[in-house]
Amino acid sequence: MITALLTVIILAALAGVATVATRGAPREIALVDRIDALLPQTQCRRCTFEGCRPYAEAIAQGAADINQCPPGGERTAQALASLMGVAPKPVGKEYGVVPDYPAVAFIKEESCIGCTKCIQACPVDAIVGASRYMHTVIAADCTGCELCIPPCPVDCIVMQPAPAR
């Protein structure tokens, strides 16, 4: 009798301690946000979606696989797999090659004609410039998505290894 009572009391006390200890712990974060947090935020659209957030939404709804992010590489694919509870798999070849090193865009200034097409293409506002003035890439803000390369009419944008920080 007393044993049973004590057990109940102790368990209740432990539960109380646990509640107090975990109070203030972060609340449940929405799945989409947790997926989004794992993505590299390159916004490169290689996953076939309009950016990292849309891809995250697609994964959350089960409309996309976890291996569609070449910039994230194996690590992102693995992290996504463990978050979603599915088997990890390598990044799909059809989505592009996993880069060996982080890269940023660079505008060859002597060739730039100031057309602003790359500025409009940049998903993260990392290119500055004005119409008919030379443009330049803010290397620290460039995610290396390469979306600025196709629109350039004079092909003056090249990818370079990201500067050491």
Binding site: C52, P123, V124, D141, T143
Partner: peptide
């Protein structure tokens, strides 16, 4: 340090992407 830095950069890129949209 690099990994934490990558997180910060990613957060910044996300914010800029969001504000641009």
């Amino acid at each position: 340090a690099r990994e934490l830095d990558a997180h910060l950069t990613a957060d910044a890129a996300r914010a800029r992407f969001h504000s641009r949209n």
